[in-house]
Simulated scan of single mutants.
Amino acid sequence: MQDILKSMKNIAVVGFSPNDTKASNQVGCYLIDMGFNVFPIYPKSGEIKGRKIYQSIDEISEKIDTIVMFRKAEFATELAKKAINLGVKNLWLQLGIVNDEAKQIAQDAGLNFIQDACIMIEHKRFKNDKSK
């Protein structure tokens, strides 16, 4: 987990809601506030915190190193395959999202894979551990 947190720079947040009461918005905005280059992925167009919303990860022209997913677990299998095709290093399924098929696909291809964990909580913990 620490390897992922140390290596993250360009992060696609799949399911990044513009609704600031949603966990995906709170986590995505936290990542932006921490200085990461965050690409919101959401079905509706617009902006979140000054960042263009992309409707698909395929629309992003920059190299993504990490995908954080806030969608239903069944979408993770296809996302794992897409991550491999895009050369993404890290795939993170947020708290409450578990897909063992996606895990197997990602790990077989050499991706770092986390599921059922909140990237914001883990980043805060990692940041606090580093400062000790």
Rank of each mutant, 00 (worst) to 15 (best):
Y30T: 00
Y30V: 05
I32M: 15
I32Y: 09
I32R: 09
M34H: 06
G35I: 06
G35M: 10
G35C: 10
V38C: 00
F39D: 00
F39S: 07
I41N: 08
I41V: 15
Y42M: 12
Y42W: 15
K44D: 13
S45E: 14
S45M: 10
S45T: 14
S45H: 08
E47S: 12
G50H: 11
R51K: 07
K52A: 04
I53T: 04
Y54T: 09
Y54C: 08
Y54A: 09
Q55V: 11
S56G: 11
S56F: 12
I57P: 08
I57C: 06
I57L: 11
D58I: 05
E59P: 08
E59M: 10
E59Q: 15
E59D: 14
I60M: 08
E62G: 01
K63I: 07
I64E: 02
I64G: 00
D65G: 07
T66K: 02
T66W: 04
T66C: 10
I67F: 06
V68S: 06
V68A: 02
F70C: 02
F70H: 06
R71D: 09
K72W: 10
K72R: 15
A73F: 06
A73H: 13
E74K: 05
A76P: 10
T77V: 13
E78H: 12
A80C: 06
K81Q: 13
K82I: 14
K82H: 11
A83E: 11
A83W: 08
I84Q: 04
I84E: 07
V88F: 03
L91G: 08
Q94I: 03
G96I: 06
G96W: 05
V98P: 00
D100A: 02
E101K: 15
A102F: 08
Q104R: 15
I105A: 12
A106I: 04
D108M: 07
D108L: 09
A109N: 13
A109V: 09
L111T: 11
L111E: 05
N112K: 09
N112D: 12
N112H: 15
F113C: 09
Q115N: 07
D116K: 05
A117H: 03
I119Q: 00
I119C: 01
M120S: 05
I121W: 00
I121G: 00
I121D: 01
I121A: 03
H123A: 01
R125W: 07
F126E: 04
